[in-house]
Amino acid sequence: MDTEGTRRITSAAGLYVPLLLGAVVAVTLGVYGNVHTPTGVSVNVAGFSGPMEVKVWLASGAALLALVQLVTALAMWGKLGPGMPSWLGPLHRWSGRGAFLLAVPVAVHCLYALGFADYNLRTLAHSLLGCFFFGAFTVKMLSLPKRGLPGWTLPLLGGAVFTALIGLWLTSSLWFFTTFGVRF
């Protein structure tokens, strides 16, 4: 992606606006989750026994796509050997979009029905990671089209987004599966 023939002066200054907007997103989500009184209920998706089941499976789908993200990103950066098939870029982009769009309904339910929770370490970590994830994703999306950013920008942001999403999955879906069993 950074294979432009002309050498540009790299500067992290281009990250200021994306970082600022990402921070706005993360803080907004956290404040909303705290201020909005959780309703406990939210619209459901047909075919599942309850909204929690919907969430854990959507989140699991997102986590699976995140693993695709990690592998394709490694390949794109030549970490899995030389040569990059042409479908790798589209696969990375579309798996990322899929993961993001799967995560949005989960976040809406979390924030609308449950709110920002801090009554134990799991829920606190999950709430913080959730806000961070959408902030970090915003930064990554806004940084992608920018030229002249330092080489570490995308790996760092991508790694942060990936880590946050996996952390979110571990603190929600895995907890749910181990607490209540694997159910639909």
Partner: peptide, 26 residues
């Protein structure tokens, strides 16, 4: 180059739709 921006806006639109549905149903 505007692909990522469209992705973000699509997510925002999806969230807006879901919140609207929630507010209506509840």
């Amino acid at each position: 180059r505007n692909g990522p921006l469209i992705t973000l806006l699509a997510g925002l639109a999806l969230a807006a739709v879901l919140i609207t549905v929630n507010l209506t149903v509840n």
